[in-house]
């Protein structure tokens, strides 16, 4: 039998006033993000992200408003004979707060005949309404194309990888909008995304990494506590101010693959600007934290939890792929 409810579970006097909420912002008290509408007992930490410096106000995320299912976070991890892979993509705090989908995505695959690990990381441009679909499509298209080149035994045609990915994006935008034809400009408005795609390949002289970049996602090699940026980053020490403008697919810029050897003891990192911005040149708190966290592979869910750290003003989606060469790997003959 149902018992009679005699007490309001959320009595109004338990709710913080706007003044209290404002005060909370000044002294570090943790409220839910919707503090003025939330019960006082919601002061308890909810998301409990790892804090680096001053954290973002803790709150429970809203569901992603998307026609298709878009999980808040994804995590993956596995090892081959030559490499250990960890990867995570987590929704940014602003998207969680507003109930918008994670616009980053990642794809990573093993090409068994060559032992290569093939990857793509994409950051959907926030001005494009279906950029989360763009990011997913771009990652999968790029990885598929690179795998196809490897299977054929021909050198990877990187410019073709970009062209094929752009074409897939336009097709995807056409399907999303349900129209028979779509020009590239319209597709750009709907699904624009940045992309870094590449591979690490075991060779007789050790693992070699190669990748291309469209936009401001980037890659680094972490050695001990030092990060070496392999691609163009958003920041330059000489810039007086910085810009958030990006070049994005389905535009097809001319790309030049970059890369080099992945030395023993080094970790290849590929990430979106949600990771790259707080990292900066790696000499600050975030760089120190990840240098320790990535010294050796951690369980995939721990890896994702580390990436989900809370640090004020850094509220973008974050995606990070880490590849460690295995110490015990036999080199190909």
């Amino acid at each position: 039998m149902w018992s009679e409810v005699t007490a309001d579970p959320f009595p109004a006097e338990d709710w913080p006033s706007a003044d209290e909420a404002r005060h909370a912002a000044t002294n570090g008290t943790v409220y839910r993000a919707e503090s003025v509408h939330a019960p006082r007992r919601a002061r308890k930490l909810i998301w409990e992200a790892r804090e680096i410096g001053v954290p973002i106000t803790d709150f429970e995320p809203k569901p992603a408003d998307s026609a298709s299912y878009r999980p808040d976070s994804v995590a993956d991890g596995w090892s081959t004979d030559h490499f250990t892979v960890r990867v995570a993509s987590v929704r940014g705090y602003t998207h969680r707060f507003r109930g918008t989908p994670r616009q980053d995505d990642v794809a990573v695959s093993h090409h068994q005949p060559t032992g290569a690990v093939v990857f793509a990381v994409a950051d959907g441009v926030s001005a494009a309404p279906h950029s989360h679909i763009g990011a997913t499509s771009a990652c999968r298209a790029a990885v598929t194309q690179i795998l196809a080149d490897l299977t054929q035994g021909t050198p990877v045609d990187w410019q073709n990888v970009v062209r094929q990915t752009a074409w897939q994006l336009i097709e995807q935008a056409r399907a999303v909008l349900g129209v028979p034809e779509l020009d590239p400009e319209e597709a750009e408005r709907e699904v624009a995304t940045t992309l870094v795609a590449g591979l690490v390949l075991p060779t007789r002289s050790g693992p070699m990494a190669k990748m291309i970049q469209v936009g401001d996602s980037s890659a680094w090699i972490l050695h001990g506590r030092s990060y070496r940026c392999l691609l163009d980053a958003k920041f330059s020490a000489d810039d007086e101010v910085f810009s958030s403008a990006v070049t994005a697919l389905p535009r097809v810029p001319h790309v030049t693959p970059r890369g080099g050897p992945l030395d023993p003891g080094g970790v290849l990192l590929v990430g979106t600007d949600g990771f790259g911005d707080p990292l900066g040149d790696g000499s600050g708190d975030v760089g120190t934290y990840f240098a320790a966290a990535l010294r050796r592979p951690s369980p995939p869910l721990s890896f994702a939890y580390d990436l989900d750290f809370s640090r004020e003003t850094f509220d973008d989606d974050r995606t990070l792929l880490a590849i460690w060469p295995r110490d015990d790997a036999e080199q190909p003959r």
Partner: peptide, 17 residues
């Protein structure tokens, strides 16, 4: 809009939409 990644069509250096 300004604190998010911005992109303006047809502009090489969009900064403020």
């Amino acid at each position: 809009s300004i604190v998010e990644s911005g992109r303006a069509l047809g502009s090489a250096q969009p900064e403020l939409v």
